[in-house]
Design a protein around this nucleic acid. Structure first.
Length: 907
RNA sequence: GCGGGUGUGGCGGAAUGGCAGACGCGAUGGCCUUAGGAGCCAUUGGGGAAACUCGUGGGGGUUCAAGUCCCCCCGCCCGCACCA
């Protein structure tokens, strides 16, 4: 009985679902995706008559599955591309894959080690790409698939190699010895992102070492100044991204000063150059510090009683992982080298230390230390009993900040003794120079320039600029990347491969079973001949960082099939720069900085004209969903780390918090399941509606259903009124629609233009699809409450409104809008139709609602003709009984009239 | 520590200095139904019977008028972090 009832319900439900709830999205979406493909509708138009517009999304790594973050990114881009096409631009909107990288190689290693089978990263990657392309197509994105590229194809990475060779010739690509992360178990270098808490990602017990290795670098520091300066012109970029880049480049103006080693040994270099931004404190230098990994640190200590202490210290500290060494609670420690130096301005002898807080990579790897006026130096001096020497005194108590005061209160009370006694911290603020030879009495802010000049005049230093930015290490001891086209010859050293021999193709005869770089196991790859002298030689087995691949793919899209050049100058000049780049803020520094750098290099090599690749940048927010959050771990935790609903580690209660969707937390939602359930249009619409595009998006299953309901309401309305609407279309074709013939039609016409105005400005000025969709929802409510009668005028009005609604929603929910447009009897694809023109007059109200306030409190609403003047409004307002009551006969002191909005009476 | 962002109903979020809470979700009541996880209608910030009143993280200020502008403080999020 129950079973029969259940079956009955099911059958019935299916029917009603079809009739009532869901429009046939599957059928419709499939139909239009096929049509777009058949007609190659989104092939980049290039008649040259219309302005170009380049929409680009950050291309994905082919993981094989599309996740919600992709969907959000690409839905924003697609809506923009479709909108701009309708606005009359020649839109170029390409897609491809950032296809080199570790996961494919790791899959091959895993297959080889665990199952003993061979897995080809190329085939593996290709399968993943095929799956993702299918998923992208199911979302209905309007890419020009003819421009598809994948960075792992030799026809793409060939150009990485060509550009590398040209950079090599100009010295922009070079080799140097550098400190890198090294895993002794893997027998290879690791990328920074592969080091987790100082351990290897593959061997969680293995501490990563720092090793000195010879690696390939790109000389991005040569471009530091330009990369910094041009940021000011990138007004189409979010301010916070520009700030991040500025900080990353980290320009600081200062001066190089040469200190000299006291009692130099025969043949020993006595120069000890330092960099400082505070030449005004030079008279206060009481010691110096050299970085432990500085090659001279141990050299100088040799033969002194300190030698063994220094050796012990360097061995311990120089090997430490950077994350350990620079942890925020890291105490400063160091050791005297047993040597002294001379302060060039005072002639004082000062001790020379090595210490963990001085970095080899910045400045000269050696510093002057002024404990009185630098907090770090102060801490170190206190710990090791080094003298403090005051050379700046505060101008007056008033000029000292509250924070600074807490450190130096006692010192001030003691009358500012020169040895800094009483100081709890350094005095780092501006003041008056003290004990500074001829500069005593000068304001320290002026002293900076004056002493720098003095030092320069005495030829012991000069003004310079330092950057935090370091050269880009591009070597990777990995298989799945672009081979670096270099050949090592015993006689000729590192020689570039001949350009006509490019690409240097990745060999397939490699073993993923062995340790180290699989490329080294190839029997065909390594041995070759020197391009210069013809002697037997060996190929470089390092591959390029995959950020190289993604530093110019937007240029290749302009001319993706070119076999002679990476891209033709004509194509580059036609399409570049990218007008709208869209992606996640996680790429704010690395990718965006590298791409800017690479573009400038290509310009200097004569490949491109443009110097900045991305005119406008939009960073979309993350997609978030609730996950258990442990207050003690202070982080979200995966569901399977819960025991009886409590955090397994702390046994404490968890709260639910919205955090970024991630596979590891298990709070993801699979887009393809949603496409199956509600269709791509519903998913697209929800993701655009749920929040402004730049902000975080809180996932809501009910929200998607809401979006789906809205689309269904449009569909049902049009299906129910199809004949009348088609009739309206015919009538409009016969004679123009004049909304003024009928009050209701005029109202609907006004709503139509209000919607056009709102949607257009929301999309084009602010990327606020959420409010654009809200406007469409309101518009639909207006349409459904409009009564279509048997007369011509209401049918025309309804048709105009409905057609406009479809056009406005076409960028966001394209499949259904296409279908419904066809149902109305329109033959052209909606994607090629012009965006509706906004008519401000039609959108204007004849009568407006004026709020009447007495002392800022609302007392009445008045419907007033829009063109009414203040006198008229005042008269009507004062005639209102509630207003009179509120005034209570008191004299009017003032009245403010905001046309068409408000009238405020002050008594 | 430094830099940036952010804080508005039960929830996501709207508001060129001018009616706070558009639009949606959820909830409540009703209609339609053999049925409802469909659809339609209505209500939905708090307090109050009502007139009214209180409400945009907290405290001051400017203004006829402040979520919005200025000053101080607090919470959360994201970068960077011994950069000499």
């Amino acid at each position: 009985m129950n079973e029969r009832l259940g079956r009955f319900h099911r059958i019935f439900k299916e029917q009603t679902v079809q009739d009532n709830r869901f429009y046939p999205f599957e059928e419709i979406e499939h139909k239009w995706q096929s049509r777009w493909a058949e007609r190659n509708l989104f092939k980049t138009a290039n008649d040259g008559k219309r302005p170009k517009y380049y929409v680009l999304e950050m291309f994905p790594y082919p993981s094989g599955r599309l996740h919600m973050g992709h969907v959000r990114n690409y839905t924003i881009g697609d809506a923009m591309a479709r909108f701009m096409r309708m606005k009359g631009f020649d839109v170029i909107y390409p897609m491809g894959f950032d296809a080199f990288g570790l996961p494919a190689e790791n899959a091959a290693i895993k297959a080889a080690r665990e199952q003993g089978i061979a897995l080809d990263p190329a085939a593996f990657t290709q399968r993943c790409m095929d799956d993702m392309v299918a998923a992208l197509k199911r979302m209905g994105y309007s890419y020009d698939w003819d421009r598809f590229l994948a960075t792992c194809y030799p026809e793409y990475y060939k150009w990485n190699q060509l550009v590398f060779l040209r950079m090599f010739e100009k010295g922009i690509a070079y080799r140097k010895k550098a400190a890198v992360n090294w895993c002794p178990d893997c027998d290879t270098v690791l990328a920074n992102e592969q080091v987790i808490d100082g351990k290897c990602w593959r061997h969680t017990e293995t501490t990563v070492e720092i090793r000195q290795l010879t690696q390939w670098f790109f000389k991005i520091t040569d471009y530091a100044e330009e990369l910094l300066n041009e940021l000011d012109n990138l007004t189409g970029w979010p301010e916070h991204v520009r700030i991040m880049q500025r900080n990353w480049i980290g320009r600081s103006d200062g001066c190089l000063v040469n200190f000299e080693l006291a009692d130099p040994r025969p043949g020993e270099d006595k120069n000890l150059p330092i960099f400082t931004t505070r030449p005004d404190t030079l008279y206060g230098v009481t010691f110096m510090v050299i970085a432990p990994e500085h090659p001279r640190a141990f050299e100088m200590a040799k033969g002194t009683p300190q030698e063994s202490a220094v050796r012990e210290f360097i061995n311990r500290v120089a090997i430490q992982d950077r994350s350990v060494r620079t942890a925020d609670d890291r105490e400063k420690e160091g050791v005297w080298l047993g040597r002294e130096a001379i302060n060039p301005l005072t002639g004082d002898r000062i001790k020379l230390f090595t210490a963990n807080f001085v970095l080899m990579e910045y400045g000269t790897g050696c510093i002057m230390a002024v404990p009185a006026h630098d907090q770090r130096d102060f801490e170190f001096a206190k710990k090791y009993n080094i003298p403090i020497k005051i050379v700046i005194r505060p101008e007056s108590e008033k000029t000292i900040s509250q924070q600074q005061k807490t450190y130096i209160e006692e010192w001030l009370r003691a009358g500012m003794p020169d040895d800094g006694s009483g100081m709890k911290g350094a005095f780092i603020e501006p003041g008056i120079l003290h004990n500074s030879g001829p500069f005593t009495g000068t304001p320290s802010t002026e002293g900076i320039g004056k002493i720098a000049q003095y030092v320069a005049d005495k030829k012991i230093g000069n003004k310079t600029v330092q950057y935090k930015l370091r050269d880009w290490l591009i070597s990777r001891q990995r298989y799945w990347g672009t081979p670096i086209p270099i050949i090592y010859c015993e006689k000729c050293d590192a020689v570039g491969e001949r350009e006509e021999n490019l690409p240097v193709v990745l060999p397939t005869d490699v073993s993923f079973d062995a340790k180290g770089n699989p490329l080294r196991t190839s029997k065909t790859f390594i041995d070759t001949r020197c391009p210069k002298c013809g002697a037997p030689a060996k190929r470089e087995t390092d591959t390029m960082d995959t950020f190289v691949d993604s530093s110019w793919y937007f240029l290749r899209y302009c001319d993706p099939k070119n076999t002679e050049l990476p891209f033709s100058p004509e194509a580059e000049q036609k399409w570049m720069p990218v007008d709208q780049y869209i992606g996640g803020v996680e790429h704010a520094i690395m990718h965006l900085l590298y791409a800017r750098f690479y573009t400038k290099v290509l310009r200097d090599l004569g490949f491109v004209k443009c110097g900045e690749p991305f005119k406008n940048l939009f960073t979309q927010g993350m997609v978030c969903k609730e996950a258990p959050f442990c207050p003690q771990c202070n982080t979200a935790i995966p569901v399977n780390n819960l025991t009886d609903g409590k955090c397994s580690r702390h046994c404490c209660n968890v709260e639910m918090r919205s955090v970024k969707m991630s596979k590891s937390l298990g709070n993801t939602v699979d887009p393809s399941a949603l496409i199956n359930k509600l269709g791509a249009d519903s998913l697209r619409l929800f993701i655009l509606f749920a929040s402004p595009a730049e902000k975080e998006l809180e996932w809501s299953d009910q929200g998607v259903e809401g979006a789906s309901r809205f689309l269904n309401r449009i569909w049902r309305y049009i299906m129910a009124n199809k004949e009348a609407l088609r009739e309206g279309k015919r009538l409009c074709a016969q004679s123009p629609f004049n909304p003024n013939e009928n009050e209701a039609a005029k109202k609907l016409h006004r709503m139509t233009h209000i919607a056009i105005g709102r949607v257009t400005s929301d999309i084009s000025q602010r990327f606020h699809f959420n409010t654009a969709i809200a406007a469409c929802m309101e518009f639909l409510n207006g349409i459904t409450s409009f009564e279509i009668k048997e007369d011509e005028i209401t049918k025309k009005a309804a048709f105009e409104a409905v057609k406009t609604l479809l056009l406005l929603l076409a960028p966001m929910a394209p499949h259904l809008m296409e279908e419904l447009m066809e149902e109305l009897g329109c033959e052209d694809s909606i994607a090629t139709q012009p965006w509706p023109e906004f008519d401000a007059q039609a959108a204007a109200f004849d009568e407006v609602d004026i709020v009447v306030q007495v002392c800022g409190k609302i007392k009445a609403h008045l419907m007033i003709p829009a063109e009414a003047d203040e006198t008229f409004v005042r008269e009507r307002a004062l005639a209102d009984t509630r207003v009179q009551q509120a005034l209570g006969g008191k004299p009017i002191r003032k009245a403010i009239y905001v046309p068409k909005k408000l009238f405020n009476i002050v008594v």
